[in-house]
Design a protein around this nucleic acid. Structure first.
Length: 165
DNA sequence: AAACGGACCAACCGCATAACC
DNA sequence: GGGTTATGCGGTTGGTCCGTT
């Protein structure tokens, strides 16, 4: 559970145990606060990204390097696209997933400003939901056929339809 | 009014590989 | 060159929002 951005889970217990055992550090986890975002964004603006563990310490963040990297790549990076996927993007995801399977990172490289996490979430929620509605498995041949025969044509129609119509 | 449930998403984990002494 | 640390990936979880029962 968390409350107002402050995580209250057993991680804190683990951390106090670690502290009681004499290990300092007390790494935070869970949702990022705006203060943390500012620290991270400012540090990277000044010093660039990379060497995440050192970066975390030098930016004054009580986080793992891993957590900082994730936050930057998935949320703070300035060139991120926000908001729902366009029809073009959805089409690309469907096509590339058909070609490569769950290679989210590779797929994301072909959608500028989108992250692998976002695409993975899109697939798990939207695509799997449609599969469920159609009463078939996402991996099944039947579903692949439906994607090619129904979903993709519908997207193409939207893409080529007059804007705003 | 409260409990429930699903959609959505941010963030975590474990593991594999890479990079670094 | 082998052990250790760092990074990147994919799967999964847990929280919040919101509509429904």
């Amino acid at each position: 559970p968390s409350y107002h951005g402050i995580p209250l889970s057993l991680h804190y217990l683990q951390q106090s145990e670690a502290a009681a055992a004499g290990e300092e550090e007390m790494l935070r986890r869970g949702p990022w606060t705006v203060e943390e975002d500012v620290l991270l964004a400012n540090y990277i603006a000044a010093n660039g990204e990379g060497r995440w563990n050192a970066l975390a310490r030098r930016a004054g963040l009580k986080r793992t390097g891993k957590s900082c990297r994730l936050r930057w790549l998935n949320y703070l990076r300035p060139d991120l696209r926000r908001g729902g996927m366009t029809a073009e993007e959805q089409l690309l995801v469907l096509e590339l997933h058909a070609r490569w399977g769950n290679r989210w990172s590779k797929i994301a490289q072909h959608l500028p400003g989108r992250t692998d996490n976002e695409i993975k979430n899109y697939w798990r929620t939207r695509v799997q939901r449609h599969a469920k509605q159609l009463r078939c498995d996402v991996g099944s041949q039947r579903f692949r056929d439906l994607v090619r025969g129904l979903w993709i044509p519908r997207l193409l129609e939207r893409i080529h339809a007059p804007a705003g119509a």
